[in-house]
C-alpha cells in the first residue's frame, strides 16, 4: 500500500492503516531522535509523542511534500523542543552514563575512558548550532542525500552542503584536543 493510500485509509478512520504507517516509519523516526537525545528511553518517549502528533494532524497534511519529508520535519521540531525543555535532566544523564556502562571485554579504566570519549563526542554534537546539527544528524544517522536534507530543512542543496562542512569543521575543532591525538 502506498503512502497516499495509507493516509486516505487513516483519515477515513482505519487505525490498522496507521499501525502499518508506524511500522514503516518508526525506525526512521527513532534513529533520527537518537541522534539528538542519545538515550534509548528518551528516544522511545519522543518517538511515541511524534506518532501521536502525526495521528492527530494527519488530516492537515497537504501532500505537497513526501510523507517521509513531513515526518522528518515533525521529528526534528519535537526533538529540539524536548532538548530545550530538558537541559538539566540531560546533563545529569550524561554524567550518570559514565558510571553505569559495563563491559566484560574492557578493564574498568578502559571502560571509563571509552565512556568519557563517548560523552565528549555527544557533547560536541549537541553543542553544534541547531541547523548544523539537523543537517549532520540527517546526513550521518539517516544517511540521507543532500537533496532530501534540503527538502526537509527548506534550504538549497548548496546551503546544506555548507552546513555539513561547517558541522564537520566544528566537530574537528571541538574534539581534536581530546580524541584527535
Amino acid at each position: 500500500m502506498s503512502d497516499e493510500q495509507l493516509i486516505r485509509e487513516i483519515t477515513a478512520g482505519n487505525d490498522a492503516a496507521f499501525k502499518t504507517l508506524m511500522e514503516r516509519y518508526q525506525q526512521q523516526v527513532f534513529r533520527t531522535v537518537m541522534g539528538f537525545v542519545h538515550t534509548k528511553e528518551d528516544a522511545e518517549d519522543i518517538t511515541q509523542e511524534i506518532f501521536i502528533r502525526v495521528y492527530q494532524s494527519l488530516n492537515t497534511f497537504q501532500g505537497e511534500s513526501e510523507l517521509s519529508t513531513w515526518l522528518y520535519r515533525i521529528t526534528l521540531n519535537m526533538s529540539l523542543n524536548f532538548l530545550r525543555s530538558n537541559r538539566k535532566k540531560r546533563m545529569l544523564q550524561s554524567l550518570e552514563a559514565l558510571f553505569t556502562l559495563r563491559s566484560e571485554e574492557k578493564t574498568p579504566l578502559e571502560e571509563l575512558e571509552s565512556a568519557e570519549r563517548d560523552r565528549r563526542i555527544r557533547q560536541a554534537i549537541d553543542s553544534l548550532p541547531e541547523r548544523q546539527r539537523m543537517a549532520f544528524i540527517l546526513s550521518r544517522y539517516e544517511e540521507l542525500p543532500q537533496k532530501k536534507i534540503a527538502a526537509v530543512m527548506n534550504r538549497s542543496e548548496g546551503a546544506v552542503e555548507q552546513l555539513l562542512q561547517r558541522a564537520k569543521e566544528n566537530l574537528q575543532k571541538k574534539l581534536s584536543s581530546t580524541i584527535g591525538k
Binding site: 487505525d15 496507521f18 499501525k19 508506524m22 511500522e23 518508526q26 525506525q27 527513532f30 534513529r31 537518537m34 541522534g35 542519545h38 534509548k40 528516544a43 522511545e44 518517538t47 511515541q48 506518532f51 501521536i52 495521528y55 544517522y141
Partner: peptide, 16 residues
C-alpha cells in the same frame, strides 16, 4: 552504535 539501538518491539502497540 547508536544507529544499531533498536526501539522497544512494543512501541507500536504502546502508541496504538
Amino acid at each position: 552504535r547508536e544507529k544499531e539501538t533498536e526501539p522497544n518491539p512494543f512501541l507500536v502497540t504502546r502508541v496504538m
